[in-house]
């Protein structure tokens, strides 16, 4: 079973999210999944009248565009992903710089490595 989600590129992300906001969708959350050692996959969840719609974004580098400008509430979850995965969101306000939960540069992001018992510390 997989979630049906629209695949998008990072360049189109903001436009797609803004379109969903136009339709009156409520921003639910972002889920980040470490795909391989290099990339990550982001799932954006939106709710409208009790039905969920998803956007799927594959990130290859460390830089992801922030959707804070569209949904201000996203700042919390984007900061959390920065903490946990060591990614960097461009245009994030307020940016805690990985100190939302952890101690910034001193503590390594816990989800950085590949998942599974071998990768976990």
């Amino acid at each position: 079973m997989t979630i049906t989600a629209d695949r998008i590129e990072s360049g189109e992300l903001c436009r797609a999210v803004a379109a969903l906001k136009e339709q009156g969708c409520r921003f639910v959350t972002i889920t980040c999944v470490r795909a391989d050692s290099a990339g990550a996959e982001m799932l954006y969840h939106f709710d409208r009248e009790l039905s969920l719609s998803h956007l799927r974004l594959t990130v290859s580098g460390d830089e992801v565009p922030s959707i804070c400008g569209i949904y201000a509430a996203a700042f919390l979850v984007e900061n959390e992903i920065q903490d946990h995965f060591g990614l960097c969101f461009s245009g994030l306000i307020p940016d805690y710089r990985r100190t939302l939960y952890l101690q910034g540069e001193d503590s390594p992001p816990p989800f950085r490595g590949p998942s599974g018992p071998a990768g976990g510390q």
Partner: peptide, 21 residues
């Protein structure tokens, strides 16, 4: 497998706190 690949929990207060601002 025996272990989950990823478990993500979005709790209600996490969604309500941004409104405090």
């Amino acid at each position: 497998g025996k272990f989950l690949d990823r478990l993500r929990i979005r709790t209600p207060t996490f969604a309500n706190i941004p409104a405090l601002t």
